[in-house]
Amino acid sequence: MAFVVIACVIIKAGGCDGQGFNLSAEQRKAIEDYSMEKSVEYFKSQDYEFIADRSQKYSFDLEFKKLGMTYFVEVKRTQSKGDKVIVTRSEVEHAKHIVISLFCMCSIR
């Protein structure tokens, strides 16, 4: 498996013990949108060129370029402290063929 953790961002100290499964659909969507926005901001601040949001079609979320290389990013978000995050079977299968960078947002409230 070729996952590379590129950044782990803590939004607010504390957090709870779950991945956020008890949230409403609206809350999950708001956290997802916020996490995607913050990951794009992070990569742009590191001089990566944002190419596209691929989350609707592929098993990774974002595509960037830097120095002629393409980077595929999976954005993970959790209400927990981020000791672990869940990856899907599809994400694991995809990571067997290309390197996927993980951008983790932890302790989201």
Rank of each mutant, 00 (worst) to 15 (best):
1 M>K: 02
1 M>W: 02
1 M>R: 02
2 A>W: 02
3 F>Q: 13
4 V>T: 13
5 V>E: 14
6 I>G: 14
7 A>H: 11
7 A>K: 13
7 A>M: 10
7 A>S: 09
8 C>R: 06
9 V>A: 09
9 V>E: 13
9 V>K: 07
11 I>S: 15
13 A>E: 09
13 A>D: 11
13 A>R: 05
14 G>C: 01
14 G>M: 04
17 D>Y: 00
17 D>N: 03
19 Q>I: 12
20 G>L: 01
20 G>C: 02
21 F>E: 15
21 F>A: 15
21 F>Q: 15
21 F>Y: 14
23 L>Q: 13
24 S>I: 01
24 S>H: 03
24 S>L: 07
24 S>G: 09
25 A>M: 06
27 Q>L: 01
28 R>T: 08
28 R>M: 12
30 A>I: 07
32 E>H: 14
33 D>H: 09
33 D>I: 04
34 Y>R: 12
34 Y>D: 03
35 S>Q: 01
35 S>Y: 00
35 S>G: 05
35 S>L: 02
37 E>K: 15
38 K>R: 06
39 S>P: 08
39 S>A: 14
40 V>P: 09
40 V>K: 15
41 E>F: 07
41 E>R: 11
42 Y>R: 05
42 Y>W: 07
42 Y>T: 00
43 F>C: 14
43 F>L: 08
43 F>K: 11
45 S>E: 08
46 Q>H: 13
47 D>K: 12
48 Y>M: 07
50 F>K: 06
50 F>L: 02
50 F>C: 05
50 F>Y: 05
50 F>E: 04
50 F>D: 05
51 I>E: 05
52 A>F: 00
54 R>F: 06
58 Y>V: 05
58 Y>M: 10
60 F>W: 15
61 D>S: 03
61 D>R: 01
61 D>F: 01
62 L>V: 00
63 E>F: 08
63 E>M: 11
64 F>C: 08
65 K>A: 06
66 K>Y: 10
67 L>D: 13
67 L>C: 12
67 L>T: 11
67 L>R: 13
67 L>S: 14
67 L>W: 08
68 G>V: 07
69 M>D: 12
71 Y>R: 09
71 Y>D: 11
71 Y>G: 12
72 F>D: 11
72 F>G: 12
72 F>Y: 09
73 V>A: 12
74 E>S: 04
75 V>T: 05
76 K>H: 12
76 K>S: 14
76 K>G: 12
77 R>P: 05
80 S>E: 00
80 S>F: 01
81 K>H: 06
81 K>V: 03
81 K>A: 02
83 D>E: 14
83 D>Q: 11
85 V>D: 04
86 I>P: 08
86 I>K: 10
87 V>A: 15
87 V>S: 12
89 R>S: 09
90 S>D: 14
91 E>S: 11
91 E>C: 06
93 E>R: 15
93 E>S: 01
94 H>G: 10
94 H>Y: 10
95 A>W: 01
95 A>H: 01
96 K>E: 11
97 H>Q: 07
97 H>K: 04
97 H>L: 00
98 I>N: 07
99 V>K: 10
99 V>A: 15
99 V>N: 11
99 V>I: 07
99 V>Y: 06
100 I>M: 02
101 S>A: 14
101 S>F: 10
102 L>E: 13
103 F>P: 07
104 C>L: 08
105 M>P: 00
105 M>S: 13
106 C>L: 08
107 S>W: 00
107 S>V: 03
107 S>D: 02
108 I>Q: 07
